[in-house]
Amino acid sequence: MPHWLDRLFGREEKSALSSRLIALTAGTRSAWSPRALPAMMQAGYARNAIVHRCVRLTAEAAASVPLAASDGAITRLLDMPNPDQSGPELWESLYGYLQLAGNAYLELASLADEPRALHLLRPDRMRVLAGPTGWPDGWEYAAAGRKRRFQRDRVSGRSPVFHIRLFHPGDDHYGLSPLEAVGRALDLHTAGSDWARALLDNAARPSGALVFKGENGQLSPDQFERLKAELEASHTGAANAGRPLLLEGGLDWTPMALSPAEMDFTTARREAAREIALGLGVPPLLLGLPGDNTHANYAEANAAFLRQTVRPLVMKMARALSVWLRPWSVPDLEIRPDFAALEEAGEARHA
């Protein structure tokens, strides 16, 4: 079974190279990020502001583009896909999953061979079933301990599942998640937040050293434990920042300043944020990251985002939907996006 499927269902990989982890500091315990798909989406979208904003910005912009089909019934299906979701809600989720997982899926519900509803399927629950020739012949969806199988009709060419994926140079059936490409930058940016929080928890300032200047230079075990307990109880945490430290005889406090490498950590985190934005196709200027923040540059960045990221993504979706729905509709079915609304939104944002 391909290694991607092992990551998809959370199976442990034996290869040391497959984890693709990065150690952030030397001489300390390494901080790793899991690369299983559900954990990767959780660490990226739910716990990182840069990834969250990039995905939402792209998904909302792409979902705001109406899709019109040459068949009126298909146009109504795209606009009102199911009783629980409107068109923009469904497409926003679909674009979001495509950016997070590199794959997105829809299920088509039909009655009397006529399309009636579209439902979203989570990519971390899907598995491609390859046929004798190696091409996808079906799909398996696992949820709540149960599995459903969808088969492609080879005679009519109809498929109950729509699968769109991003380009992956090393996999025949699944797309490459952009979070894989920005994984190292994501680790670095998240670790920067953890480091800043740890610095705040530890008296909100760089730590220091308590030096015992007694005869043998060592505290007894009871003295050591008592001193440690007092420091943790009364001199750590943001609420205790700046509280004076009362030392007994023989003890001296030696503060430790930040090294140049530690002082540069903020810059490294900022560059990691820019790399994440680059990998997800969003100009850093639109995220409020420091840089050339002028009015002209912002307008150009917004135009580039719509032209280079949103438009190609929507065009790809429209063409893929056309190919998928043709066996269910007229042979020359064509779905076209209406970019007028997107251009008006871009002009309003520029103004």
Rank of each mutant, 00 (worst) to 15 (best):
H3K: 07
F9N: 07
S15I: 06
S15E: 14
L17G: 06
I22W: 12
G27C: 08
R29V: 10
S33V: 15
M40V: 03
M40W: 05
M40A: 08
A43I: 00
A46V: 02
A46D: 13
V51H: 02
T58I: 08
T58Y: 00
E60D: 12
P66A: 08
L67V: 02
D79Q: 10
M80Q: 14
G87A: 10
A101P: 03
L106H: 09
A112C: 10
A117D: 15
H119K: 12
L120Q: 01
R125N: 15
M126G: 06
A130N: 07
A130W: 09
T133F: 08
P136S: 09
Y141F: 14
G145N: 10
F150R: 01
Q151P: 02
D153P: 02
F167A: 05
D172Q: 03
Y174R: 05
L179C: 04
E180Y: 07
H189E: 14
G192I: 05
S193R: 10
D194Q: 12
N202Y: 04
A203C: 04
K213T: 15
G214H: 09
G217N: 14
Q218H: 10
Q218S: 09
D222K: 13
E225S: 10
H235N: 02
T236N: 07
A239P: 01
N240A: 11
M256E: 09
M263G: 13
D264I: 11
D264P: 06
E271M: 10
E271N: 11
I276T: 12
L280T: 03
P283V: 06
P284L: 04
L287N: 03
P290T: 11
P290M: 08
D292F: 09
A301M: 02
N302A: 13
A303G: 01
A304M: 10
L306T: 06
L306W: 00
Q308Y: 06
V314E: 00
A318W: 12
R319F: 11
R319E: 15
V323A: 13
L325D: 01
E334P: 00
A340W: 06
A340E: 11
L342A: 04
A345F: 05
